[in-house]
Design a protein around this nucleic acid. Structure first.
Lengths: 182, 182
DNA sequence: CAAGGGTGTTCGGAATTTTCAACAGCCGTG
DNA sequence: CACGGCTGTTGAAAATTCCGAACACCCTTG
């Protein structure tokens, strides 16, 4: 994590000089110079102060992807989706060529009787999805729901959850999870 | 942004004492004590050092949502999806009750002739989608693609992009964008 | 080319953070 | 209750960071 380079890149992206940013942020230009040269490691409070002149929250500063640019594959034909299936559940991942993806975007199919296992799932992030065909049983926390085609869900992945298909038709759904855990 | 409280919460979540974390991180327990009490504002490098004992990257430290817990709606019936339609394009958002969402999860429908406008779109983040029915023309950067049902896409939203339906059938797709810009 | 305004860098000293060591409290055990 | 082992907190000294003021460089302008 090259704090100096990040700050410099962001500052230039905004078209600010060291002095201009310093003035807006209420620090001296030398502070910014030294931070950018990595000759100091700023305190969180002073970095926050500096970023307030952009303005930009700390999260964004650390999460911003500066080395964007590798032109990867954009469109994935149906048969190109990468198969992550485990057990009976069919899961196909969109965007295999995309390194460091933020979204796990999946096309899923649960045959009759399939589920995500007896243990409830729980992990960092959020997830959403829409049922395309068939019916789905979704348990989140203590609640259990039945979703029909067109119905959707959205919840914190930290809440324990499980997907099941107790019906006689296979259920197809499209889902997104972030951050991507693949 | 209460750095001290965050660190304390995360440390306790991991079941570590100040001394234990200090040992793993290679700092002294007093450092951790003072950071947690907000009697100092740690330098980025030392905070990073402290977090290495968890371990946890800086991004996650700043983005972690500690005040999770508001039990919001999980399932959204088809008719409950919130309508964001603009012009001819029908866009329905999943998860209206979810405040501060990370994912914009949409059910979209482009009638014949519809598009996202003459200007190419460009914004922070990444997006993915799958065509459910109909055919879609997608332009990303200099390339234009035709997607059929089951075909999917994934790209950096910073690349200029446009969606069009030049065909005679409406096209339905399900998409996810992060960070959520709604 | 001299002057003025812009850029970023560097220096010494002031201010802040970190260490080291000691301290106070709590609990379970002998 | 004294003891060891744990918890977190708090001093003074050492280390690091920040400010204020200079410096060097590049333009443009007169």
């Amino acid at each position: 994590m090259d704090v100096g380079a990040r700050l410099r890149a962001i500052r230039k992206l905004k078209g600010l000089s060291q002095r201009e940013l310093a003035k807006r942020a209420g620090v001296t230009n030398s502070t910014i110079s030294m931070i950018e040269k990595n000759s100091v490691s700023p305190s969180v409070s002073s970095l926050k102060k500096v970023l307030s002149g952009i303005p930009m929250p700390l999260v964004e500063f650390f999460s911003l992807d500066l080395e964007q640019g590798n032109p990867t594959q954009v469109v994935y034909k149906h048969e190109e989706l990468i198969d992550l299936s485990s057990g009976q559940v069919e899961m196909k991942l969109v965007g295999k060529a995309h390194t460091n993806r933020m979204i796990a975007f999946l096309n899923e199919m649960y045959p009759p009787g399939a589920d995500t296992g007896d243990d409830m799932l729980s992990h960092e992030g959020e997830e959403a999805g829409t049922v395309v065909s068939g019916r789905l049983e979704l348990t989140v926390g203590l609640e259990t729901y039945i979703l029909e085609p067109g119905d959707s869900y959205y919840f914190d992945s930290t809440q324990p959850h499980r997907f099941r298909n107790p019906f006689e038709e296979p259920v197809r759904l499209i889902s997104a999870t972030t951050p991507a855990n693949f």
